[in-house]
Amino acid sequence: MTSLIFNSVVRALQPLLLFFSVFLLLSGHHAPGGGFTGGMVAASAFVLYGMATDTAAARRALRVPLPVLMGVGLLLALASGLVSVVSGEPFLTSVWLKFGAGVLGEVELGTPLLFDLGVYLVVMGVTLTFVASLAEE
């Protein structure tokens, strides 16, 4: 697509969308959002970029090959389930880490976030694979 308006808007939108996707990912446990939505938004940022330039450029911008994205995502989700097994709890039990972090107040980090991060990467990888294979047909 060669539209000046579209290209300029995408240029501004892409980083915003990526930021927004991370926000969705992090807020997911207690508020609407999560790995799936975040992954979709992140994927849409790259889809828009691909529409403004071409798929090869979008692949370069992503830096990581799509199968690797999916594989790492699956492994992260799997690892989040195995954390609890180490301490003798059943698979997939949530493990939480609470600590004070200065200005941020008390921060809770847990395996659900790791799981969500895995989902984020898998959703992003799968969506982009769909779109790329359709666009390159």
Binding site: P67, V68, M70, G71, V72, L74, L75, L78
Partner: peptide, 10 residues
């Protein structure tokens, strides 16, 4: 098998 398949992608 899931870990094997996922590593297979990487």
């Amino acid at each position: 098998p899931l870990a094997t398949a996922a590593l297979g992608l990487v």
